[in-house]
Amino acid sequence: MDRPNLPLNGLRAFEVAARQGSFTRAAIELRVTQAAVSQQIQRLEDLLGHRLFTRASSGLILTDIGAALHPVLTRNFDEMGEVLDRFQGGRYRETLNLGVVTTFATGWLIPRLEVFKVAQPGISLRIFTHNNRIDIAKEGLHMAIRFGDRTAWPWLEAAPLIAAPLTPLCAPDLLPHLQAPQDLLGQRLLRSYRVDEWAGWFAAAGAECPPLEGPVLDSSVASAELAAAGHGVALLPAAMFARQLQAGTLARPFATEVAAGRYWLTWLRGKPLTLAMAQVRSWLMEGAGAGEPPE
């Protein structure tokens, strides 16, 4: 098909709908009506003579033609957007959208952003926090920092950042009551969605894990806030809460730690690194290797 005849509006509507898996979510991203998205895709299908989607109760399903077309469009729209971003404002500048698990953002990255701006003035770093469950492609990110085991994301490239073993943290006035691991049996133990963390810590401490009935939270930051307020004991990466421990808003009753994973910088496998992606990776890995505490 000749370039002047490319149905750009229809291709853009299709790419967003395929990525979002929904005409409704595509309309929100494109800031148009759902009917407009549907009409653009219908025109594209008429032009091609092929269906691009089938509808199912779970959402939109790509046909073989749609599945062949979608990655090509995503890659090219991303590349066009990245180039245009670099030249906005009359000077070269590259924007990088970075998803960051909230604990790492507050405990390590955000205190260092001013240092990053000085070191990399040509990169506009946009931070989007998440709770460790994120889809880089669907959420328009270039890279994402996650916590866990490398094997959990076999479809992604990953660079190791910081190991963050877990240990109980609590309010300082609770310290006198926690002289041995068994003393935790009388406390409310705050839990994360990773169900085996407390069992692993008690095993490392040589004690039996009690039945767990405390609240389940999907944010270590929320767990830390509850613990600091005296509402329970949280199992947290002490390295990410160094400022709170130094300030005395949190306390660490035991030295025992349990490995539950580490923080990783991830990006889509097969996607070439832009200059900004490569520089951010180098900066993060250098800083993580230095092991500096947050200021």
Rank of each mutant, 00 (worst) to 15 (best):
T103K: 01
S192H: 12
R150N: 10
L48K: 10
L185T: 15
R243S: 04
L184D: 09
G289N: 00
I136A: 04
A159P: 00
A35C: 04
L284M: 13
W267N: 06
P253F: 01
V16C: 03
P168K: 11
A239W: 00
L185G: 15
L174T: 11
G186T: 15
S192R: 13
T266Q: 06
E197T: 04
G206M: 02
A105R: 12
A260C: 07
L273K: 10
I123K: 10
T102M: 03
G230Y: 12
L184M: 12
D149Q: 13
V195H: 11
R43I: 07
K138V: 07
M80R: 08
W155H: 11
Q40C: 12
D183C: 14
I136D: 04
P111G: 02
V280Y: 00
A247Y: 09
I145T: 07
R281S: 02
A251F: 09
W264T: 13
P176N: 05
F14T: 02
D85N: 03
E139N: 15
R112I: 10
G186C: 14
T151P: 04
D135M: 01
R262P: 15
L62S: 06
I41M: 03
A251C: 12
H130T: 14
G270C: 09
R150T: 12
F14I: 00
W155G: 00
A105H: 08
T102V: 02
L84H: 01
E82I: 15
A224L: 08
A222I: 07
R51E: 12
G289I: 05
R55S: 08
L275F: 03
G206H: 04
E15D: 03
T33H: 07
V233R: 03
Q42M: 02
G270I: 09
F254K: 03
D218K: 05
L96N: 02
L284N: 12
R12P: 00
R133H: 14
D64C: 01
G261S: 10
A163R: 13
G291R: 04
K117I: 09
L30F: 06
Q187W: 06
T106D: 07
R243I: 00
P294I: 05
R126E: 09
W108Q: 08
R31T: 11
E79S: 11
D46I: 13
T33L: 01
V195W: 11
G90L: 04
Q246E: 09
R51Q: 11
C170D: 00
N5G: 11
M240F: 11
L185Q: 13
L190Y: 02
L226N: 06
R75H: 12
E79L: 12
P165S: 06
A67G: 06
L69D: 04
L44R: 14
I134M: 10
F116D: 10
P210N: 07
E94G: 10
E257Q: 14
M277I: 15
T266E: 01
R112A: 15
L47K: 13
D149A: 13
R43H: 08
L98Q: 11
E15L: 07
T24A: 05
R91M: 08
P165G: 09
P210Y: 05
L184P: 10
A251Y: 07
A204F: 02
M143R: 05
S219R: 03
I162T: 04
F87H: 13
T54D: 07
A288Y: 00
L98C: 14
V37Y: 04
T274N: 05
V115P: 13
G287W: 07
